[in-house]
Design a protein around this nucleic acid. Structure first.
Lengths: 249, 249
DNA sequence: GTATTGCTTTCCACATAGTGGAAAAGTAGG
DNA sequence: CCTACTTTTCCACTATGTGGAAAGCAATAC
């Protein structure tokens, strides 16, 4: 079965172009000029202009009236929230997050891997975070232990795409450690950028239809092994309670 | 100036159709059948099919392999996070949220109005929420005091669209109270659905380019006026500190 | 104050991409 | 095995989406 309309395998060109522009706006920091988007996308100025105007009408893009530059739009927030509020794993783990935070006295996060990106989709803040919070954090998946556990559970094409973004040495190390990550229910080691360690526990099962998710807790460096074991145990308990809610025993 | 290509004023038809389907998926609960989407959109089966496949390739839609039904996709989360992480008001208020939560001993939320919808874009949970958390909540704007303050500050077309969604009596009441809401920096009254009261404080200024935002704190009913005044004062202090960060004095 | 430069937006002609009716393929239930 | 419904593909057609050229706009330099 092959639908020729819609450029076999690639989908409708106009939708692909619109999505391309959204991706470019997401990859940039802040607002971009129409000419920059045309250069990076390979599309002409009038085409970029019409696509951006169409996306603006749909509230998916916003044009800064002062600078005429374009950025992502607020309509994306509603769509994303609707998506997240329907994820069974988030609904199931939700009731346990505050209790887990109070028990550990640490900020608890829920991470989801999307493509090669690790996204913080929920968090319950402990008092220890002070003024350094990142409620809408995204980072390359392998930067954090949670991302390593989840990335290792991706299918081959996604795993390969992830490796393609890495330098040779980092890709080799990741490839070497993949089987270990895939076999582990939890991981405690350093993050790449935040200068902290992190304990991560996988939430999702291979048979789940939604993207892989994990719990994550940032910890000080050089935590005693007993303390790590306690944290893992608490996180596992929350995870297992959520599993019972979801019908896994 | 008028660009005929792109159906004057409506943008490109294909982008509009794609956005229409995203909106229908957001409005539904869970996954929808292709035939349902065709019926609600007025588009033909093959058209809906090609649009959905294109959106799926862009990670904005997901097809459940078991039921063949369609739902919103995880790519929306990355785009939304990138959008939110660039909002100046969120960056500015962020460092004060944990301290405010600890001071009030109550959950603190940041609300943003998008169209006629109020969206919780950040929250710092107190211990009082227990197992009833709504981290990705969306609701009609006027259901909550924060939404009332923000909706009253919308332009005429958006305000009108909001009224159109209401029953006649509710619309009349909102119209009667609009001026009062627009003139108030804070509001303390009942929410429509949660069975709680709420204190809300406006965060954004009319001249801000980003969507209107507010701080919100749920409170028990029949709170003494002195306590309400204390809560408002603390929230205003956080708001004013964020304003100084943003260059307003 | 004027000219220049660069960006955004519109105009126009054209070709093909996107559309919908019809048909085929797939799946679940009786 | 048959039926009913849904999803996906095929096919012909035309209206939409494209890009080159031009117009409009705003900021900057002289």
């Amino acid at each position: 079965m092959r639908d020729d309309a819609g450029d076999a395998r690639g989908g409708l060109g106009t939708v692909r172009n619109a999505a391309l522009l959204l991706g470019l706006l997401a990859a940039g920091s802040g607002y971009l000029q129409l000419t920059e988007l045309a250069e990076r996308s390979g599309l002409s100025y009038p085409t970029v202009h019409r696509l951006l105007r169409s996306l603006t009408l749909a509230d998916l893009v916003h044009q800064d009236p002062r600078s005429a530059r374009y950025g992502l739009g607020p309509g994306l927030v509603v769509l994303s929230h609707r998506y997240l509020s329907g994820l069974p794993i988030l609904t199931a783990i939700n009731p346990y997050l505050v209790q887990l935070r109070d028990e550990l006295r640490l900020t608890v996060e829920v991470q989801v891997i999307v493509g090669t990106t690790l996204v913080t989709v929920d968090q319950v803040d402990g008092s220890e975070v002070g003024i350094y919070r990142s409620p809408h954090a995204t980072c390359p998946a392998l930067d954090r232990p949670a991302g390593r556990l989840l990335a290792a559970r991706l299918g081959e094409p996604d795993w390969q795409a992830l490796l393609d973004d890495l330098e040779h040495e980092a890709a080799a190390e990741a490839a070497a450690r993949r089987a270990d990550w895939a076999a582990s229910e939890w991981l405690h080691e350093a993050t790449r950028t935040a200068g902290t360690d992190e304990v991560a526990v996988v939430l999702t099962r291979a048979e789940d239809a939604s993207p892989p998710a994990a719990l994550a807790v940032a910890t000080p460096p050089r935590l005693p092994e007993e303390r790590v074991a306690e944290i893992v145990e608490s996180m596992m308990r929350a995870r297992n309670a959520a599993d019972r809610t979801r019908g896994y025993a």
